[in-house]
Design a protein around this nucleic acid. Structure first.
Lengths: 103, 103
DNA sequence: TCTATTGTTCGAATATAATCGAACAATAGA
DNA sequence: TCTATTGTTCGATTATATTCGAACAATAGA
């Protein structure tokens, strides 16, 4: 477990971002992270799904570069990489987040 | 053939949009349509693929609400539904288009 | 050292998507 | 009516994703 890989800004692609956001569960996770604006453990999002399924979705969010996960004890603390994504793709993620709130 | 179904604004979902934009070929089609800013036939995008594959991608773009196709003679004229999508999800598609141009 | 907690990985089943040739449909124009 | 043009639909194959239980790994705290 120990270390978790995160892509650098240069490695993040628009298609990966779009793909990660095309699943309702993942979109929900991203929305909750944005709204909370703090580190959240995987368990806090009590979506109605087994651990292994959630772990899978977090893996995709991390691989896309949307979520950063830092290990603190036995917990995995997740944050949205909002400012970084905004730097690379200005307006994309912020507009998506706004769209989730409104719609 | 005759008529082609297009979703109404109310039927368009963010996840469908994200999914449609997660494929490089479709993203390319959307980018070309935006840049051209005019009606384009399917054949004009000479992507290196068989007709049936392109037809499949256009179908998904239409179903997501991104592309409108009007039949003129034997040709199918495609346009981006940019202003409509902007109305429902302000900033999302325009930011994506900008990101394609820059990156 | 034992146990509880948190999350990942594995493996297998199921579902969804991409790809492309061939056949088909609609229309324009000769 | 015949033919060329433009795309769609069908059907089959291959590739990717999703889902979830079970086993595993890392750590904290008793």
């Amino acid at each position: 477990m120990r270390q978790i890989h995160h892509p650098s800004l240069a490695q993040i692609t628009l298609t990966d971002i779009m793909y990660a956001l095309s699943d309702p569960t993942r979109l929900e996770i991203v929305a909750r992270l944005a709204k909370a604006d703090r580190k959240m453990t995987c368990g806090e999002f009590d979506l109605n799904r087994p651990k292994s399924s959630l772990s899978h979705h977090f893996k995709i969010l991390r691989a896309a570069g949307l979520v950063e996960t830092m290990i603190e004890g036995t917990e995995h603390m997740n944050t949205l990489r909002l400012s970084e994504i905004e730097q690379k793709f200005p307006g994309v993620l912020s507009a998506v987040l706004q769209a989730i709130v409104v719609n």
